[in-house]
Every structure is written in C-alpha cells, then in structure tokens.
C-alpha cells in the first residue's frame, strides 16, 4: 500500500515534539503521524511506501522522525524533494529515500523501486519514473545505516571510513 501525503510534511507532524522523551524505536513507530494521519501507525504494513510532495521532513533535526518511519516498516519514502537534515538522518538510520515526481502515484498503485536503474516502476500504470537515489544512499541503506557501515569498514579509522564513503559521490546531503 502507498500512504499518500502532500507538501511540507514536517517533523512535528511525523513525530510531535511532546513525544521527544521516547527513545525506544518500536515505541516511536507507534506515534508516527499520530495526529496528522492517526490510522498510519495502526494500519501500516511491512513493505508499504510513503508517497509525498515537496520538502518532506522539514523542521526539526530530531532523528525520531526518520527512526519512527524506519521502524514502522515502510520500505521507502518517495517524495518530490526532502529537507536536508531529514535526508541526512534517514541516511544515517538506514531509511531509504527516493526523490522522484510522485504526482501520478496513487494509494492503490503497485510500485517497485529499481535502485540499479534509479527508477520507480508503477506496475499498475505501466510507467517508469526517473528517480534520484545517490550511490551514497544506496550503499548505506544496504548496510542498514551508517553505524553498521562503519562497523563493517572498521571502527579503528572512522575518518578514513567516512572519507571512502563520500568519495563514492552522491547528492543532497
């Protein structure tokens, strides 16, 4: 299923500030969109997509927003554009973000992300939508987040590991 949102979905809508003291990621998932779309946390299923417009994740630097969405089970957030800090937080926690024109994707559409070709495939409508999924995002997402990437690269030389990561190019962050 695709959960459809509009433009300017800010972090206060994703995880309202008064829940800031929650640190358990599974508990955070339960309050995702608690007021903006209360049915989300109850009905979201593993592998669902969030489809949004411009500037998704604007507002606070709170990592809770990205963590809540990751632990809700969504496969990815596909949006026309993302706020900078949210993009970086999502990268760090291993939440896949895909930048694409989402205007034609509907809630019932059967969609798939092809990371190797950087496209969103809409099987229902027979469309392929060009997508921006930087190599950086793909590499870190495949590891499950930046900490797992650093563990695999060796914690002994953090700066070196990060230097190798960013030398692989990317955008947005």
């Amino acid at each position: 299923m695709n959960w459809i949102f509009g433009d300017k979905i800010n972090t206060d809508l994703i995880t309202p500030g008064r829940y800031n003291m929650i640190t358990d990621p599974h508990e955070l998932a339960k309050i995702a969109f608690v007021e903006a779309k209360p049915e989300f946390a109850r009905e979201v299923r593993q592998g669902d997509f969030i489809i949004a417009g411009d500037n998704f994740g604007s507002g606070s630097s709170r990592e809770t927003a990205a963590v809540a969405l990751k632990y809700s089970g969504v496969q990815a957030v596909i949006a026309k554009s993302f706020a900078r800090i949210f993009y970086r937080n999502a990268l760090n926690v291993g939440l896949l973000l895909v930048t694409a024109d989402t205007s034609l994707i509907k809630a019932e559409d059967d969609i798939e992300i092809d990371q190797t070709r950087s496209v969103v495939i809409n099987h229902t409508r027979g469309q392929e939508i060009p997508a921006d999924i930087p190599h950086l995002m793909q590499v870190v997402h495949a590891k499950g987040g930046i900490l797992q990437y650093l563990r695999d690269e060796g914690m002994g030389d953090l700066k070196g590991a990060l230097q190798r990561l960013i030398s692989q190019e990317g955008s947005h962050v």
Binding site: S61, E63, A66, I85, R88, N89, N92, I146, L147, L150
Partner: peptide, 10 residues
Amino acid sequence: IGVGSTDIAI
C-alpha cells in the same frame, strides 16, 4: 550547521 544525533555522535 544543524544535524541529527547520529552525526553528532560521530
């Protein structure tokens, strides 16, 4: 520049 908690930890 503002960032999240994982970046700040690193």
